[in-house]
Amino acid sequence: MPTTRRLPVVVAIKINEDSFTPRQQVVLTAALDLLVENGDGLTMTGVARRASCSKETLYKWFGDRDGLLTATVQWQAAKVRMPQVNRTGLNVSSLRASVEQFARDLLAVLTGEISVTLNRTAVTHAAQEKDSLGTIVLENGPLAIRRRLKPILEAGRDARLLRFENSEEAFRTFFGLVVRDVQIRLLLGDKTLKQTDIEADAKQATDHFFALYGYSATQ
């Protein structure tokens, strides 16, 4: 009888840069650098050597290679900063500024060499059913980022600044407006965006999102 492949259970825990100590950040940066350089070739030994620490320390901090990969993806995703809003005095201007900042961070991270390499490697692994990297990237990358923005959108709805019935649908619309076809083009070898392009695209996506979901636009 054919066997059913069981996906590993991957739990997202740390999605804030401050959750990692400075020494752990050095290790995760080394792991990201090695992923860019070697793709599939990330090993605990290689990371320990690059970060000038022992493998025992890596196992103590991250458990195993999958744990290290998970923390590495979380460290990369944490560069998309959590929008800061004051729910008590939330207004259109502050909400738009927070959403636009999130869009800039998202584009900057997704279009960087590290994320492109991570995504390319994860897609290849998922297609080959090679290991858990695809699941790790999905859970701790896009799904974790979604969990960070949805409460902000819901706060805008509660303050009657945005109007939508389903925050998941609103997030997907926002993500589509920000990312468009950029990610797939980069995965296929297109050049990365310039900072001026990122800023312009983030503003345009925010303008379009508020035109669709802004409270005054839907009355």
Rank of each mutant, 00 (worst) to 15 (best):
M1P: 08
M1S: 14
R5H: 09
L7P: 03
P8D: 08
P8M: 12
V9R: 10
A12F: 09
A12D: 14
I13F: 13
I13D: 15
N16M: 04
N16A: 13
E17W: 01
S19G: 14
R23S: 13
Q25C: 14
V26R: 15
V26Y: 12
L28A: 12
V36T: 10
E37P: 03
N38Q: 14
N38G: 07
T43F: 11
T45F: 12
G46Q: 11
R49Q: 12
R49K: 10
R50P: 06
R50E: 15
C53W: 07
S54K: 07
K55H: 04
K55M: 05
E56W: 04
W61C: 00
F62T: 03
G63P: 07
R65A: 09
T70P: 13
T70L: 14
T70W: 07
T70K: 14
A71S: 06
T72G: 14
Q74P: 06
Q74R: 12
W75L: 08
R81L: 11
M82R: 14
Q84I: 15
V85S: 05
V85R: 12
N86M: 08
N86T: 05
N86Q: 12
R87L: 03
T88D: 15
G89M: 06
L90F: 05
L90W: 05
S93Q: 14
S93N: 14
L95S: 02
L95W: 01
R96V: 07
S98F: 11
S98E: 14
S98D: 12
S98I: 04
E100A: 09
E100R: 12
A103I: 01
D105L: 04
V109R: 02
G112W: 01
I114G: 02
I114H: 03
V116H: 00
T117W: 07
V123I: 13
T124N: 08
H125S: 14
H125G: 08
H125V: 03
A126H: 02
Q128S: 03
T135I: 04
I136K: 05
I136Q: 13
V137D: 06
V137Y: 09
E139S: 02
N140W: 00
P142D: 08
L143P: 00
I145K: 07
R148I: 00
K150E: 10
K150W: 00
K150T: 05
K150A: 01
I152L: 09
L153W: 00
L153K: 04
A155L: 03
G156H: 02
D158Y: 09
N166I: 00
N166Y: 02
E168L: 03
E169F: 02
F171K: 06
T173M: 15
T173K: 15
F174K: 08
F175W: 10
G176Y: 11
G176A: 09
L177Y: 06
V179F: 10
R180S: 15
R180W: 04
D181C: 07
V182N: 11
V182A: 10
I184M: 15
I184Y: 13
L186K: 02
D190Y: 00
D190M: 01
K191Q: 14
T192A: 10
K194C: 09
K194L: 11
D197K: 09
D197A: 15
A200P: 06
D201N: 12
A202L: 05
A202K: 06
A205C: 11
D207Y: 01
Y213N: 01
S216V: 01
S216N: 01
T218P: 13
